[in-house]
Amino acid sequence: MVKAKKFILKKQFSGAPKPTDVEIVEEELPPIKDGEFLAEAIYLSVDPYQRVYTQNVGQVMIGLQVAKIIESKLDGYPVGKYVVGHFGWRTHTISKTLTIPFGIIPDFGNLPVSLALGALGMTGNTAYFGFLEICKPQKGETVVVSGAGGAVGSHVGQIAKIIGCKVIGILGDDQKGKYITEELGFDHYINYKKGNVKEELTKYAPVGIDCYFDNVGGDTSTAVISLMNKFGRISVCGCISIYNIGTNNLVNFSPNAGVFIRNELRMEGFMVTRWTERWSEGIEQNLKWIKEDKLKYKETITEGFENIINAFIDMLNGKNTGKAIVKVK
């Protein structure tokens, strides 16, 4: 018998999540049956969507993890292989066949398997498909990315530079700003906590903005959209600026409709699972760019299963650079 630890939701989040909103409990797992495998968590992902996804009290906190198969009675899932699965915040999981976007992790060469939660997983594909398919950027265009120091935003900006765009990142920390400009190649950054976003954008994008990849919503997005060029394209990935005040307040994001009409803008939200049938395309292209040193990644790693909730809270407060993950042990 294997004893698994898991974080369950003890109390519905109200405002910013707190450590007391969750608790660790243990459960004894039964022996695996034919057609099943037992996986042990190695890395866990913390992501903004976990704050707004509706869960019932008593449920295991949702989330992706990289896990190692330690026992198997399922063909194609041998002991020792790594899988990525939506197993939640737990140390051990009994599972059956996984379907794309989950399953056996392909060979990354000498790159860490944790990238299956970041640049070579759902995060990387969110950037790849969400930016290229919706914004359809062209060489020479001006691209603005909000939440630019995070996992998706920093990835999007690099893809834009690969294409040949001018890229401006918006974030809330000067150290992150130096990172995306000096190491990732962004042309400029704006610290929304220190300056006037619209004024700064006018300075850095004097001829207007063609593409906007939106991770934050709120006042920042209203400022960006007001400066967009004719036929501008907006890809809406998230609205983290208002997650802690509840999803009912999403209506607060209301840029002037006249801007959309006058400039004939297109704004589209997306879920990355739209491109499940092309999943391997994104992984393979991102891997190719990494190997060519055209795409860089950064992980903020928190040690210890019991510290997941702290990593989650830190991520929502923007304390991570790149992908926030937890190393279980």
Rank of each mutant, 00 (worst) to 15 (best):
A4F: 00
K6P: 00
F7T: 00
F7L: 04
I8E: 02
L9P: 03
K11Y: 01
Q12D: 08
S14E: 15
G15V: 05
A16N: 10
K18M: 08
P19R: 13
D21A: 02
E26S: 13
E26K: 05
E27H: 04
P30R: 13
P31W: 00
K33G: 01
D34W: 04
F37V: 07
I42E: 13
Y43F: 14
S45T: 02
D47K: 04
V60W: 01
L64D: 14
A67W: 01
Y77I: 11
Y77D: 11
P78R: 10
V79C: 09
K81C: 10
Y82V: 01
G88C: 09
W89I: 03
W89K: 03
W89C: 06
R90K: 14
R90E: 04
S95W: 09
T97N: 13
F102G: 00
G103H: 08
F108P: 00
N110V: 07
A116D: 13
L120H: 10
G121I: 10
T123I: 12
Y128F: 15
F129C: 01
G130Q: 05
E133H: 12
E133D: 15
E133M: 02
V145C: 00
G147V: 01
G153C: 07
S154N: 09
S154C: 09
Q158W: 04
Q158D: 02
I159C: 04
I162Q: 09
I162M: 06
I170L: 11
K178R: 14
T181Y: 01
Y192F: 13
K194V: 06
N196F: 02
N196G: 07
G208W: 02
D210Y: 01
D210H: 15
D214E: 14
N215G: 13
S221M: 08
S226V: 08
K230G: 00
K230E: 12
F231D: 12
F231N: 13
G232D: 06
R233G: 06
V236N: 03
C237D: 05
N248L: 09
L250H: 09
S254P: 00
P255D: 06
P255C: 07
G258D: 11
G258I: 12
V259R: 03
I261R: 12
N263M: 09
M267V: 14
M267S: 14
M267W: 11
M271R: 08
E277W: 09
W279P: 04
S280E: 15
Q285A: 05
Q285D: 13
Q285F: 12
N286G: 11
L287G: 06
I290K: 06
K294D: 08
Y297L: 01
K298G: 05
I301Q: 07
G304P: 13
F305V: 12
E306A: 15
E306P: 10
I308K: 09
A311S: 13
D314R: 12
L316W: 03
L316C: 03
N317M: 09
K327V: 02
